[in-house]
């Protein structure tokens, strides 16, 4: 029985790939959509979707830039506002638009079509602060004070897009010099630097076996904690610490690639990502807010306080200065801490 179904499946996929055109979609490694939606898209458009994961968003973009002479995909999802100017400057994107839905005011992503947005910010461990009877820091400067020594873990902006976004927020808020002065102070106050989000969240955050009760994460993480709790809980064990200069708005989008094949199917995929089914479904898969205005928000997001303000550098500045900022950051924070 099993053998038969495997055989049938193999035959079915063989015939599908033989008959249907293939649409190659490059995504970052966090891309995830409900399977039935993808099947529905394939059926409606008569194409086979080949999802290719290119690693972290920054890594993925560089892979696309390197192979622009022989494009390895037709459409790309996951380029965000920290990378869009770089992608445009490299000339790998074809003009893309979508007539589906109206975009939320803040979800600006020139050169691509916005699909979702979210916020990088600080999360804290509620139980830890309750037990330590320590008031929450009210400003980023508080984190440089002795009372908050050894409490913060951040991701290295050189290896993590989460860490990069947080560093960019501090620079947008304080200017480059002001921001690096702050980083120097928190470095001397016992800042811990982790490689990526998973390492920070699962080995350094005090909620998961580490010693740091404040972690750079996403504003939606407290909601995900409720969604993925073992027994259904009504209150998140973590919460957002929304401080001025510590919130970055991340907008992710989709765009056609220059030299890509199947332009019609690619456009259909762009519209598909903006459709209500995907916009609703992505929320509890990728933990981002839908970019199309008026989409119903999943009730679990009530557990995540949505930031009212954020600080982002201009797209042009992020394109021209990010590499230098990351290098300066590592020389200041990582090397000198030794």
């Amino acid at each position: 029985m099993l053998k038969k179904s495997v055989l049938l499946l193999a035959l079915a996929s063989l015939s599908l790939s033989a008959l249907a055109a293939e649409l190659r979609v490059m995504t970052h490694s966090s891309f995830s959509l409900p399977k039935d939606r993808i099947a529905e898209f394939e059926k409606q458009n008569g194409v086979k979707l080949s999802i290719i994961k290119g690693g972290d968003a920054g890594e993925m973009l560089n892979k696309l830039i390197l192979t622009r002479a022989n494009p390895i995909a037709d459409v790309v999802y996951g380029i965000d506002n920290t990378l869009i100017a770089k992608a445009s400057a490299a000339g790998i994107l074809a003009p893309t638009s979508s007539k589906v839905g109206r975009t939320e005011k803040d979800a600006v992503l020139p050169g691509a079509v916005a699909v979702d947005y979210g916020y990088v910010t600080l999360n804290y461990d509620k139980a830890w602060f309750a037990k330590a009877k320590l008031p929450l820091p009210a400003t980023l400067d508080d984190l440089a004070k002795p009372a908050y020594k050894d409490l913060l873990v951040v991701e290295n902006p050189a290896t993590s897009s989460t860490g990069l976004a947080f560093m960019l927020a501090t620079i947008a808020d304080r200017g480059e010099e002001g921001a690096f002065k702050w980083w120097e102070k928190v470095r001397d106050n016992g800042l811990k630097v982790s490689k990526g989000w998973s390492e920070a969240y699962y080995t350094d955050f005090s909620r998961n076996g580490g010693s740091r009760p404040i972690v750079v994460s996403y504003a939606s993480s407290p909601a995900a904690e409720v969604f993925y709790s073992k027994e259904k809980i009504s209150e998140s064990p973590t919460a957002n610490l929304l401080l001025k200069g510590g919130v970055f708005l991340q907008v992710e989008g989709v765009a056609l690639l220059k030299g890509g094949k199947e332009p019609q199917a690619a456009q259909a995929f762009v519209d598909f990502l903006r459709s209500d089914g995907v916009q609703t479904g992505l929320q509890t898969k990728m933990w981002m807010y839908p970019a199309v205005a008026g989409t119903a928000i999943d009730p679990v997001f009530a557990h995540a306080q949505k930031p009212a303000k954020f600080s982002n550098p201009s797209l042009a500045a992020m394109n021209s200065k990010t590499a230098a900022w990351v290098s300066r950051w590592n020389r200041l924070v990582v090397k000198q801490a030794n």
Partner: peptide, 9 residues
């Protein structure tokens, strides 16, 4: 391990 939450862990 790329998502928060006890069940994922």
């Amino acid at each position: 391990l790329g998502r928060p939450g006890a069940a994922n862990l």
